[in-house]
């Protein structure tokens, strides 16, 4: 449950109650936001005050498992936000730590990856590069178009999620996604106790349900709390920026917060396969002036040597 109190009202109340404390609260709003991120570990129902970057004071109760209105909230998304990702191909050295962090935090089984790193070379004459591919959270998502039951849905904040408690397992979305971003629970999942304890929400997609589709979720729960997604926060090269398009800013693991529009303009950002018209929410910066040995060169990563045995 979220209750938004206009900051002005809050300020008034604050001045009456304890002016100094209110000022302190304001000046440390960032800390307060961080504080709220810990709320998921608290007992269900305990509320935290959080000042969002937008300046609204938010009364947030800690997520309490898979309650029905948590699911409503998961379907709507964070009001006023438009999450966006920028991946700097010039900085990515294909180390795969993003994918590993993602898989670890989402308890992803070994037969799939939400964030997959491809070794690309567009033509014989052009330079090879690494292409990390999460779900693009397309604004015109073919997967959501074809889902017969609305189990795949697009939220107001731009995230495309899957409700594994509604999905009928037809796999039409997997055929429809041009980027093969989706995976399927082919066998009965082996959910860890930690996953079971957290309770299900489309925002994190576990504990898994057999016979349903899944994919990268942009760490919707983390974004809500003002934390970078696992991939973005882990990348040792700071290659994955994440942010709010409305705020026109993206941040990477090195703590660089840059203006999104300027970054895309200055570095000639592009979206993968724009011609398909899916309007991805993930932008790429071209692999110009690389800071690492190219794939295939000496000293380059060989992360993806062969997954054929475990993944298909």
């Amino acid at each position: 449950m979220y209750m938004t109190i206009q900051r002005r009202q809050f300020l008034k109340a604050g001045m009456v109650v304890a002016g100094g404390a209110a000022a302190g609260m304001l000046t440390r709003s960032h800390a307060a936001t961080d504080e709220s991120t810990k709320s998921s570990g608290r007992p269900a129902g305990e509320a935290t005050l959080a000042l969002t970057a937008e300046g609204d004071l938010v009364l947030a109760s800690a997520p309490s498992g898979a309650s029905s209105h948590a699911s409503d909230e998961a379907r709507r998304g964070v009001p006023g936000k438009k999450w966006v990702m920028v991946i700097d191909l010039a900085a990515c050295d294909g180390c795969g730590k993003c994918s590993a962090a993602c898989s670890k935090s989402h308890f992803v089984p070994a037969d799939r990856e939400y964030l997959r790193i491809f070794k690309m070379q567009d033509s014989a004459d052009t330079a090879p590069y690494w292409l990390p591919r999460p779900c693009f959270h397309c604004d015109n998502p073919p997967c959501a178009r074809v889902c017969p039951v609305g189990a795949t849905f697009k939220r107001d904040d731009g995230i495309v999620l899957i409700d594994n408690e509604r999905c009928i397992g037809c796999r039409f979305c997997m055929a429809a996604c041009p980027f093969t971003a989706r995976s399927f629970n082919w066998s009965r999942p082996d959910n860890s106790p930690a996953a079971e304890a957290k309770g299900y929400s489309p925002e994190w997609g576990y504990p898994r349900r057999v016979g349903t589709a899944e994919k990268c979720d942009f760490c919707a729960d983390m974004a809500r709390e003002g934390k970078l997604p696992h991939c973005s926060g882990t990348c040792p090269m700071g290659a994955i920026y994440f942010g709010d398009e409305n705020e026109d800013a993206v941040t990477n693991s090195k703590g660089d917060t840059v203006q999104l529009s300027k970054l895309l303009r200055d570095r000639a950002g592009f979206r993968y396969m724009e011609d398909l018209g899916t309007q991805p929410r993930v932008h790429y910066l071209p692999p110009a002036d690389r800071r690492y040995p190219a794939p295939g060169e000496r000293g380059a990563n060989t992360l993806n040597a062969s997954k054929g045995a475990t993944q298909r």
């Binding site: 709003s29 960032h30 969002t52 970057a53 937008e54 936000k81 974004a223 003002g226 934390k227 970078l228 994440f242 942010g243 709010d244 705020e247 800013a249 993206v250 941040t251 703590g255 660089d256 917060t257 840059v258 203006q259």
Partner: peptide, 8 residues
């Protein structure tokens, strides 16, 4: 201030 950090 931005959502995920401070922009210089």
């Amino acid at each position: 201030l931005r959502k995920f950090g401070t922009m210089a």
